[in-house]
Design a protein around this nucleic acid. Sequence first.
DNA 1: CCGTATTACGCTAGCCGTAATGATG
DNA 2: CATCATTACGGCTAGCGTAATACGG
Lengths: 284, 284
Amino acid sequence: MLELYDLEKLVAFKTEGTLVAASEKLLISQPALSRSMRKLEDEFGVELFTRSRNRMELNENGRLAADLAEKLLYEAGALTERARALDRSRRTLSVGTVAPAPLWELAPELSRLYPGMTISTTVTADAGKLVEGLLDGGYSLAVLTGRPEAPGLECVGFGSEKLCFLLPVTHPLAGARSLRLADLDGETMLLRPNLGFWADVLKAMPGTRFIVQEENYAFGELLRASSLPAFTTDRVQRRNGVTDGRTTVPISDEGTSVDYFVAYRASDKRRLADALKVVEVYAR
Amino acid sequence: MLELYDLEKLVAFKTEGTLVAASEKLLISQPALSRSMRKLEDEFGVELFTRSRNRMELNENGRLAADLAEKLLYEAGALTERARALDRSRRTLSVGTVAPAPLWELAPELSRLYPGMTISTTVTADAGKLVEGLLDGGYSLAVLTGRPEAPGLECVGFGSEKLCFLLPVTHPLAGARSLRLADLDGETMLLRPNLGFWADVLKAMPGTRFIVQEENYAFGELLRASSLPAFTTDRVQRRNGVTDGRTTVPISDEGTSVDYFVAYRASDKRRLADALKVVEVYAR
DNA sequence: CCGTATTACGCTAGCCGTAATGATG
DNA sequence: CATCATTACGGCTAGCGTAATACGG
């Protein structure tokens, strides 16, 4: 029977030009390769080479066969690759979100509910990309700030979040009951990266210099040691508690208070039932 | 390494549904097939089946892999098939002709000049088909009654042929120096099959009943034993000599005298040089 | 119990490598 | 005579079959 390994040898001979060179590339002996090529001709029932006593070349048949073999080998590789890719996607639950906070609650629960699955998360300000990803299978769950319109998608509420300033108690505005973003514009502020749509909200503070600190411990140290204002949200505080030496002041700008929704494909409803139940609990 | 035989086993399992059935189809034992399927999973690095103690089924990965494997196997078959087809075409010299007589001279010479090649011949009234066939490689040589116009084609003259009546000496018109087709219309005539364009010429004798005899010896017997008029040509007579008890009367209708040309692809000129030389000799 | 998959075990056909041979430029 | 392909021969291992085992409807 024709086998892929034989075709690989044929292709090696095509690219190397001699049995010696090809056999070295294939890490087998010349006699082995010589025999394989004869066997291949037998299997095709067709002469593939012109042979002189110390020279072997592909003839027209051989060139065609080798070219087609090369394609076939590529496709065989693609076959395993696609199977692996499918398996990976079956073992991965991709979650996209427009803001990081909901993810902090959702991701650990997903890990607990679907052990063995890789939870892949993405934070982006682009809600359109998330909806698109839901539809084409790129995401299984998406946390949005509104209900998606696309057919085939459903969603459940996932609570709300309200942006606040986190000011040192010594800050001049620390006593305010409510502030506008513009009130602190021009100062230097501490910020986490990957804020999702919040990054868009902060465009209302064009004069502000943001110091971005990704590392969690370092961020906490900066908060404690510096007198730089920062942001927090009601949701973060409910989860992490208050920060010593800092006071929380709500922001009254439009768009700083949002409702979240977790969207999913209707066809995934059963598969994701456990996760959606957890979402409901958090939504309260 | 992934091998086609393994993929064949996978496909057999997909179509048969159980290892037992598939192993019977493949003419191997169940244990062998069971092991092969495990090996396949190893090679993919991916689970392909859901197993209970006495039931095995393809999972999502497995279905994808089996479907792709089926395609790949088909393409592997096509690969050898194409190589064989190429080989066959390399070993075949296809000759098309609009009339049988030139072929009687050409075919034996081609067999002599290209030993080992299969000479495949076709007689057809449709000259357009022959030109088309020359262009697409379906024919290597075509005998036509005019020079082909298509670019990439060349031709050489191959003599002429003149249609005659072959009448019993007892026939009322046997003494004529020349006749029209219409002069014998309404009689019953002897005919060979596969006349090429001559068949079109005979449409000028709508009232004639033709007795077609393919077999050579039988045709000769009919010629000798019967008094039915028949056709011959100058070219046939030059080759075979005259027929006892018959006289030859030329036909003066338009289109009963033709010049032949042997057409070929210009790119084939060198390969066919020997054949074309022979054509020239016959053309005199 | 019959049908199915898996495990255990011994065998063998196919493929390989080494060594020797042949041809060619 | 250096290089390449082929032939000869012996060894090894992947894959097979048989037999035994285990599970489920």
